[in-house]
């Protein structure tokens, strides 16, 4: 009986854990803030409007709703801020990786020779900060593919160019 791990015949191959991952752009934190703020602004406004117009009678406990919303707001704000430092990416010679998550840490690597297509997206806020989202699709269920948010548009284009040249070449 052979042990699978001892059977690995190649003596050394690239190790993902030895590589330095790059952090995403610091400016992206602003977009996260904007998103959180606008979400909470809308939800507090909604509660306020319901309270005033009395569509549903929530007057007796509306104060608790506001407190709960504010607590959740600070909680998410705090989490996102810490979690931001965990968002890192890495482009190697034959693959691209992305790391994120605070409570659940995820590392995903997509080899270039399995990529179906690449997309660069830019929302209105991202355009203001000159940032972009790089999405990489492989075959099969696309919901689990790799998405790097908050890198410079020039960097995204550079990576796309690099991968395209690698795939074709």
């Amino acid at each position: 009986m052979t042990n699978s791990f001892e059977n690995i015949s190649v003596i050394s191959f690239p190790d993902i854990s030895e590589n330095e991952f790059n952090p995403i752009e610091r400016k992206y934190l602003n977009i996260i803030y904007i998103n959180i703020f606008s979400f909470f602004f809308i939800s507090i406004l909604a509660v306020f409007l319901i309270d005033v117009t009395k569509i549903i009678d929530i007057h007796s406990f509306s104060i608790w709703l506001y407190i709960a919303l504010i607590v959740i707001f600070f909680f998410i704000f705090f989490i996102k801020q810490i979690g931001f430092k965990r968002r890192k990416y890495l482009v190697r010679n034959k693959d691209i990786s992305y790391k994120n998550g605070l409570f659940l840490m995820k590392t995903t690597t997509v080899p270039f020779n399995r990529i179906q297509h690449i997309e660069i997206n830019q929302g209105p806020f991202s355009r203001f900060f000159d940032l972009a989202t790089l999405s990489i699709f492989t075959a099969g269920n696309s919901s689990h593919d790799l998405k790097i948010r908050g890198i410079k548009i020039s960097e995204a284009e550079k990576i796309k160019e690099f991968i395209s040249s690698k795939i074709d070449g």
Binding site: L104, M105, K106, T107, T108, R114, G140, H144
Partner: peptide
């Protein structure tokens, strides 16, 4: 295999274990 992922919750991190996902 299309791509590879490693998932680790903070509880798993304490025990030095992780889930490996082959897509």
């Amino acid at each position: 295999i299309q791509h590879v992922s490693l998932h680790q919750t903070i509880f798993q991190a304490r025990k030095n274990v992780a889930d490996l996902v082959f897509q």
